[in-house]
Design a protein around this nucleic acid. Structure first.
Length: 338
DNA sequence: AACATTTGACCATT
DNA sequence: AATGGTCAAATGTT
């Protein structure tokens, strides 16, 4: 896992990645930073430019990831972390076809409940947060008691699974040590395109908040009425899939007022997802959440508490990005390419 | 009625 | 066999 290197034949890909991510991304981000540092009066006139830069940065990440993804298939060597789970269905079908006759028989007879393809855990990253809200629309599809765990684990899939084939899922479990926190494991990335709404929301004085397409800052999870006594054990888990949906749809205006009511204790916990990374980058290997411990792939931990619009620093991102395959952006490489 | 959640059954993996 | 992930019918909510 951690020793997956870039094969020689991929060196050009590496250069492309560096060019895309470090040079262009850095350039755009620096430009953006410059704009953001302007006095707010001047800033208003730059909204279109900011919008454009954000688009460029996103494109840069998109391009980067597409290079990485294509390199994997071309080179035959797969960084496990980045190995797409998208194509796992065929794999499973094959495996299944080789399965025992008994298994086949059961399938043929039932072909309904339980006939599913379990995805390989190839792309996953975890977060620890006081909320399971992350700006995406999730639908709960299961819950399990976990051995030796006090709290059950809830399973969510993207609400766009069916209409857009988005394969992102997540598992949420309240932490025993700290029941106020939720341990969330994201599996697979969003391929749905709700992100398209993003530019419309870049009207805030705080640009990071714009990344927060769904007003996470003010929309804390609300316990649904029918959650009843369950709320004591996992209030957010039961409600999450409703709320993001509200936000994903029309309610940019009314969602906040609707959702701020009863979790005032979270008002001080202002964390913001860098959703563009999660959305546009094929595989988000990093999530930044001030106030939250962030664990990537259960191995690489990042903790950031001071990432704001004023401290937007591409170097930080570059240092933090870890493809889990010994791929480094070293300074000399950067200089050489520049 | 449409959509979301709950929950037990089923299946894959170890 | 144990454990955990997924499915889908039943049920609840809007």
């Amino acid at each position: 896992m951690g020793t997956c290197c870039w094969p020689e034949k991929l060196s050009s890909s590496k250069e492309r990645v560096i060019k895309e991510l470090v040079i262009q991304g850095h350039e755009f981000a620096s430009h953006l930073q410059f704009l953001l540092q302007k006095p707010s009066g001047d800033f208003d006139g730059c909204l279109a430019l900011v919008d454009e830069l954000v688009g460029k940065i996103l494109r840069s990440f998109d391009e980067t990831l597409s290079v990485i993804t294509s390199s994997e298939s071309a080179g035959g060597e797969v960084c496990q972390n980045l190995a797409s789970s998208q194509g796992d269905s065929a794999c499973y079908d094959d495996r299944r076809s080789e399965d025992s006759g008994e298994s086949k028989k059961r399938l043929a007879i039932k072909n309904k409940r339980g006939c599913y393809k379990r995805k390989k855990i190839s792309q996953s990253w975890t977060t620890v947060c006081p909320t399971i809200e992350d700006g995406h629309g999730w639908r709960k599809y299961g819950q399990k008691e976990i051995l030796n765990a006090k709290y059950p684990r809830s399973y969510f899939r993207c609400t766009r699974k069916h209409d857009q084939g988005c394969k992102a899922t997540k598992q949420v479990q309240r932490m025993e040590e700290n029941p106020d926190m939720y341990h969330t494991t994201y599996i697979g990335h969003h391929t749905c395109r709700d992100i398209l709404k993003a530019p419309q929301m870049i009207t805030d004085s705080d640009p990071w908040e714009s990344y927060n397409y769904n007003n996470i800052v003010t929309s804390h999870s609300k316990i649904p009425k029918y959650e009843k006594e369950e709320e004591e054990h996992h209030p957010f888990i039961g409600s999450s899939s409703k709320e993001p949906k509200i936000k994903q749809e029309e309610s940019k205006e009314d969602a906040p007022s609707d959702l701020t009511g009863d979790v005032s204790s979270l008002d001080s916990i202002v964390w913001k997802d860098l959703i563009p990374f999660e959305e546009s980058v094929d595989e988000p290997t990093m999530i930044l959440r001030p106030d939250c411990g962030v664990v990537v792939d259960s191995v690489h931990a990042y903790s950031c508490t001071e990432v704001t619009s004023q401290s937007l620093d591409m170097d930080f991102f570059v240092r933090s990005i870890d493809f889990d395959c010994d791929f480094h952006f070293d300074e000399s490489e950067l200089c050489r390419l520049q």
